[in-house]
Design a protein around this nucleic acid. Sequence first.
DNA 1: GAAAAAAAATAAAGTAGTTTAAGGATTTAG
DNA 2: CTAAATCCTTAAACTACTTTATTTTTTTTC
Lengths: 193, 193
Amino acid sequence: MNYDQILQNVEKHISLDAGETDYFISLLEPKVVKRKKFLLQAGEVCHFTNYVHKGCLRNYTIDDRGFVHISLFAIEDWWISDLHSFLTQTPATLYIDALEDTEVFQMSKANMEKLYIIIPKFERFFRIMHQNAFIAQQQRLMQNISDTAEDRYRQFKEKYPRLELRISQKQVAAYLGITPEFLSMIKRKMAKS
Amino acid sequence: MNYDQILQNVEKHISLDAGETDYFISLLEPKVVKRKKFLLQAGEVCHFTNYVHKGCLRNYTIDDRGFVHISLFAIEDWWISDLHSFLTQTPATLYIDALEDTEVFQMSKANMEKLYIIIPKFERFFRIMHQNAFIAQQQRLMQNISDTAEDRYRQFKEKYPRLELRISQKQVAAYLGITPEFLSMIKRKMAKS
DNA sequence: GAAAAAAAATAAAGTAGTTTAAGGATTTAG
DNA sequence: CTAAATCCTTAAACTACTTTATTTTTTTTC
């Protein structure tokens, strides 16, 4: 297992000595998630926060009419969970599944609490991550309220460069909150100008 | 000054002895905000988190086209700030102003950090508050993506019972993300059936 | 590598919400 | 208490997006 990538991710925000690094790694559980397999389903408690080493996951809800709304794509070097369920250990509202065969490192809630006690600076690390999640969500809310679908599509491409080549248009539409048919029209219109 | 209301709010999540209560109160700064006056403007750093003792505040953004989008109303017993700006001490994206003459208790960032050191269980209190803010925001994002304006209006009335009597329809429309004209139509339609 | 399944494109008709405009009602400020 | 400002209602025309249906293309599966 190659832990360089996840260690670099952590060391963007905090510094670790050799012993701390080893302890952190000892708490991680590597896992392979095959395409279309679930890491979490709504109603279950989210026991893990997941770092994506390779591949692509999404988290999403399903509304009353059965429509899928994707709240986040997580590719290499992203973290993903149902944060609310994980923090409060109550049933999740989100599903998490794999759009490609994916390798993750999982940190359980129990291990995360041990980690906070042994190496308190990880509180800082995860606090920053959770703040960033909050901000990203706030921006997305504003975007959804005030921008057109075409604007949101442009912003999607900025936020996730090259991801569009890896996933279907249907997934992009479910992220943007529009029908695949309408996204198809937007793309045709943009191609012309 | 009557601190019973804010103390009850805190004691929903943590218990305080007499000394802790006094210390907490000593860090609060009472302030009166007249109708239409600002507590925060976008671009400023949010130095305070505000507990509404009486009255009504709103926080909102203004988009590229000049439209106001209200993200929260805070009436009696609610907390309000630009959480991101407050936590990171970077410029705010939100405005906060008063829809009625309002009395708040303000806690500065500096005082909050003192409070965490002297009475660590307040970390728990504010962590719960911030988690709840995150969840509420997530629910609102989902609502905005998947529900019609009429559904969102019904949910607004559940979330803020009786608030509609205190604020203008224009404010409600800015919260729902629709024009006041369309809200007028929704109300007429609902009144018929 | 063929059959089946899923995804994408196109188009026509429909709907939720906006825009603009005008008149009437209510609130606010001096 | 009055003038001015703001807010609310109504309605018609418009726009962004959905729905439904059909055909073509791509992907998956065995």
